[in-house]
Every structure is written in C-alpha cells, then in structure tokens.
C-alpha cells in the first residue's frame, strides 16, 4: 500500500509504503516529464511569466533601437514618431509593451508571494486571477493609448 507523502512542484512525490512488511521511504523523483502534467491556473500564469520574459528579452532590441534613434537627433526623433505610425511597428511596440506589463505584474505577485502572502492553494489561485485581470486591463489600456 502506498500513499503520497508530499508532492513537489515538479510533480514528483515521496512514497511511503509497506514492502515485504517493512516501511519503505522512496525518495526518488517519480515524474519529471512536464508534458504529462496537469496545468491549474497558477501554473498557466507562471508559464506565461516565463514566456513573456523570453519574449521581452528579444523585444529589448526593438526598444533599444527606438530609444537610440529617438535620442540621436531631432530628425531621429521625428523618424521614430513616423515609424510608430506604421501599423506593424505599432503592433510590435504594443506586443513588447504587453509582454513587459504582464511580466511586471506577475513579477510583483511573485515578490508578494516570496514575502509569504497567498502561498496556500486558494491564495495561489486568487493571486493568479488578480494577475490575469490586472494584466488584461493594463494591456488593453496600453493598446488604446498606442492607437
């Protein structure tokens, strides 16, 4: 007979059971295959935090390019304004800004949880809901502001 003693975040578990009449504490990780995990809402927001992080890492190139051009000269500044009138550039800027806003809000939630708040199962779910709701508002506001 086996029961799960503790389930770690990676899905592995300590199994404590009886084998040949002796208590066995099996400490080995049982499942490290992330493709077979179930994804509750806090896991999805965590995954989005990683995705948005990787995305803005690449997006920094666009931000630095626009910043350099805008600070170069009056002409460069006007060129940036002209570029941002283009639908594709506008969309790219909004995408990077959205990634940044989501990463920022999810990051603040992460730091709040590091301080020990909302670490329960229910707290994690509420935190994930708040993160998604605030990000949706921020991203839509950014979109309205850009267009």
């Amino acid at each position: 007979m086996c029961r799960f003693e503790a389930i770690r975040v990676d899905g592995s578990a300590n199994l404590i059971g009886q084998r040949d009449g002796q208590t066995v504490n099996d400490n080995r990780p049982k499942n490290l295959d992330i493709t077979t995990f179930k994804y509750p809402l806090p896991a999805i927001t965590s995954l989005l935090h990683r995705l948005s992080g990787a995305f803005i890492f690449v997006g920094v190139a666009l931000m630095l390019y626009l910043l350099e051009l805008s600070l170069e000269s009056e002409t460069g500044f006007a060129l940036v304004q002209e570029l941002l009138d283009n639908v594709i550039v506008k969309f790219a800027a909004w995408a990077v800004l959205s990634g940044l806003l989501y990463h920022l809000i999810a990051g603040i939630k992460h730091l709040i949880m590091d301080l020990g708040y909302g670490e329960t199962l229910q707290g994690g779910f509420i935190g994930a809901c708040i993160t998604l709701a605030l990000s949706a508002v921020a991203i839509i506001t950014a979109g309205v502001w850009i267009w």
Partner: peptide, 10 residues
C-alpha cells in the same frame, strides 16, 4: 513630448 524634453530626461 518634443525632442528637447525627451532627450533632457536622459
């Protein structure tokens, strides 16, 4: 913001 205001920040 115009160019002067923007560049003065940095």
């Amino acid at each position: 913001m115009n160019f002067e205001q923007w560049s003065s920040i940095f």
